[in-house]
Amino acid sequence: MGPETRSWREPHRLVLLAIGIGIIVFAAVNMRWDWLPRYSGRLVEGVGTTLWLLFLTSVLGFLLAVPLGLAQAAGPVWLSAPARMFCTVIRGTPLLLQLWLLYYGLGSLFAYWPEIRQSWAWPYLRSAWPYGVLALTLSFAGYEGEVMRGAFAGVPKGELEAGRAYGMSPLTVFRRIWLPRAIHRALPTLAGETVLQLKATPLVATITVVDVYAIISRVRQDTYLTYEPLLLLALIYMILTGILVLAFRWLEAKVPVKGG
């Protein structure tokens, strides 16, 4: 990487590339892929679910991360202490545990509550999807809230004072200067966080949300194959990660870095 990045056309790379293609061809010919056409429709749907889950929880999580970061950076102690505790708890415990706590724990508590069982919300509360979205959103908010704290604290004081000197109200200073500058500062970490979020989404399959990972688990149960479905799954996630990284690189190039 960096300055010593070289062309892929060097002789040893061509040999490695040939070996890599050879392995792929060998896998395609000698492994069993006859199940693929039967599941292709469901696989595409699963990828769609995964991407929708990623988009939804990243956006919601980021919206939650802004007040969390602001409370920690500038809030009074009765706001900053709970926000800091939330971030510590989310970052200090495994996501799988949080997910199971919400799904099995909260879900089992709700089941005891007759008022909830009879309410309109019960069909939703009984399904797995809301718990998956909630857990992934809270997780993203916890990690990104910590980043936003640093981003809010890092905006130079002089810029905020200049805004005040122009007669802007505190809200206007926040809307025009503080928030845009903080988001700008947090942007480079956002790509990494989003890739981590993509890699966290398959956990929701453990609470019966049907994403691409769940479809592949289904294939493994139906066909008794160990490796083929998992290798395909790894390939799918690699492609998704690659697309995400490229998309964020494009986005960062669009945002002017001058003065950043």
Binding site: V195, L198, K199, A200, T201, P202, L203, Y213, T226, Y227, L230, L231, L233, A234, Y237, M238, T241, G242
Partner: peptide, 20 residues
């Protein structure tokens, strides 16, 4: 590869491949 594939998938793959 390791950084692009979810840990959960890697764990399944390595667990079966390693024991095999």
């Amino acid at each position: 590869l390791v950084r692009a594939v979810p840990e959960l998938v890697l764990i399944l793959l390595l667990y079966y491949a390693g024991t095999d």
